[in-house]
Amino acid sequence: MNWQIKEFNQLTTKELYEILKVRAEVFVVEQQCIFQDLDSKDEVSYHLFLEDHSEIVAYLRILPPNISYSEVAIGRVLTKAEHRKKGISKKLVQNAINFVTDILGEQAIRISAQAYLLKLYNDLGFEPVSEVYLEDGIEHIEMLYRK
């Protein structure tokens, strides 16, 4: 398995296709959520993913400040169903935190987390900063990480 982080213009056509495919598989099909995934934020984001034999098994995007929030944001966090409960999601988010704090030099990260993942994010240092709310029919909570 191979971790990669790339800016949009560094992604190959195949990587971009696989990213969009897995996002649709998890967010649209599995979670039965109809939403506009292609929101023009991908082009300004970093894309962190784990590949296993050219298949993307975990993914998230890192958005610069002032795109979604005043802080850096992490979004579209996913791990394919058959790869869950192996610690991959925790490593994925930890790699993103390390990149944001060590490479980008940012001190805060804001996320809109699915509420059922509150413990995962809390264990990684994120604190809830909102009440639970519905986003695309799924309970979410805004959380903030501060180094």
Rank of each mutant, 00 (worst) to 15 (best):
M1D: 09
W3N: 09
Q4H: 12
Q4N: 11
Q4E: 15
I5Y: 01
K6Q: 15
F8I: 06
N9Q: 10
L11T: 08
T12M: 06
T13C: 04
T13R: 08
K14M: 12
E15K: 09
E15M: 04
L16K: 03
Y17F: 15
E18V: 06
L20V: 03
K21Q: 12
K21W: 07
K21N: 13
R23S: 05
A24H: 14
E25V: 10
E25G: 07
V26H: 01
V29G: 06
V29P: 00
Q31E: 15
C33I: 12
I34P: 09
F35W: 13
D37V: 13
D37T: 10
D39E: 11
D39F: 09
D39A: 07
D39P: 12
E43T: 11
V44N: 10
S45K: 04
H47Y: 13
L48Q: 00
F49P: 04
L50F: 08
L50T: 05
H53M: 12
H53W: 02
S54I: 03
S54G: 03
V57P: 00
L60R: 01
R61I: 05
R61A: 02
R61E: 08
I62E: 08
I62R: 07
P65S: 02
S68F: 13
Y69A: 07
S70D: 14
V72I: 14
I74Q: 03
L78Q: 00
T79C: 12
T79M: 00
T79Q: 07
K80I: 14
H83L: 10
H83K: 13
H83P: 05
R84C: 14
R84V: 13
K86D: 10
K86Y: 11
G87N: 12
I88L: 13
I88K: 04
S89P: 07
K90E: 13
L92R: 11
V93F: 11
Q94C: 07
I97G: 00
N98Q: 12
F99A: 12
D102M: 08
I103A: 09
I103P: 06
L104Q: 11
L104G: 02
E106A: 13
Q107P: 02
A108Y: 04
I109N: 02
S112L: 04
S112M: 08
S112A: 14
A113I: 06
A113T: 05
Q114N: 04
Q114K: 01
Y116K: 03
L117Q: 04
K119S: 15
K119V: 06
K119Q: 14
K119A: 12
L120M: 15
L120Y: 10
N122R: 04
L124C: 05
P128H: 01
V129K: 12
S130R: 03
Y133G: 04
Y133R: 03
Y133W: 06
G137T: 09
H140L: 05
H140E: 01
I141L: 05
L144Y: 02
Y145G: 04
Y145V: 06
R146W: 05
K147H: 04
